[in-house]
Amino acid sequence: MKKIIKYVIIDILRNKIVLAYTVFLLLISVTIFNLEDNSAKGLLSLLNIILIIVPLVSMLFSAIYVYNSSEFLELLVSQPLKRKTIWLSLFMGLAASMAFAFFIGAGIPILLYEATPTGFMMLGTGLLLSVIFVAIAMLAAVMARDKAKGIGVVILLWLYFSIIFDGLILFVLFQFADYPLEKIMVGAVAFNPIDLSRILILLKMDVSALMGYTGAIFKDFFGAQTGLIISFCVLITWIVIPAWLSLRKFNHKDL
C-alpha cells in the first residue's frame, strides 16, 4: 500500500498543478494577511477563499487525476494487488497531496500570522475539507465513465455544496418562516460540509453575537465539547462514506 501511495504522490508532484495551487494559496493568504491591517480581518477574508477555492480545486483536480490515471490503474489492476489497496492508495495519495498543498499554502501563513483558536479551527476544517472533496470527487469519477461527464458532475456538485444547498435552506426558511427552525438548522448543516466548516470557524471568531438567537443555539451546540466532537465526526463521515461507496463501486468496475 505504501509503495502505491508513494508512486501516486510522486506522480502528483510531477504534475505542476498541485504546485501551482500551493503557490496560489500561499500568495493569496500572504497578501490577505499583509493587506488587512488586523489579522483577524485577514482571517475573515481567507475564510471565503477556503470555503470556495479549496473544495473546487480538490474536486476538480482529483476527478481529472482519476480519469487521467486510468491507464495507471489498469496497469496496477493487472498486477498482484488488491483493488482495495489500489483505490485506497490513490485516495490517500490524492488526499495527502491536497491536504499538504493546503497546509503549505494556507496553513503556514495562518500559523505565522494568526495562531489563535480561530486560526487552528480554520486550518483543521480546511484540511478536512480538502480530504472530503477528494473523496466526493473520486466517487463521482468512479460513477461516471466518461471524463467530460464526470467533470461536469463534479462542477455541479461543487455548485450544489457552495450555493444551491444554501439556496434551498433559504427557501425552506422562508416557506416555513412561522415555525421555529433554529434547531432543525443545526441538523441541516450536517448535510453540507462547507456550511458546517463555515459555522465552526465563524463561531470561533465570536461573531455568534451577530447571529442572534440562531447564533446562540449554534453556540450552545457547536461551542460545547460534545458538539465540537460531533461536528468533527460528521466531517469525518463525509470522508468515510464517499470513500467507501467509491471503493465498492471500484471493486466491481471493469477496466
Binding site: 475573515l44 475564510l47 471565503n48 470555503l51 470556495i52 457552495s162 450555493i163 444554501d166 439556496g167 435552506i169 433559504l170 426558511l173 422562508f174 418562516a177 427552525l181 433554529e182 438548522m185 441541516a188 448543516v189 462547507i194 456550511d195 463555515r198 459555522i199 465563524l202 461573531v207 451577530l210 447571529m211 442572534g212 438567537y213 440562531t214 447564533g215 449554534f218
Partner: peptide, 13 residues
C-alpha cells in the same frame, strides 16, 4: 425578516 437565515452568514450564496 427571517433571523434563522443567519445560518448563511458569510456564505457564497
Amino acid at each position: 425578516q427571517n433571523p434563522p437565515a443567519m445560518i448563511l452568514f458569510r456564505s457564497l450564496m
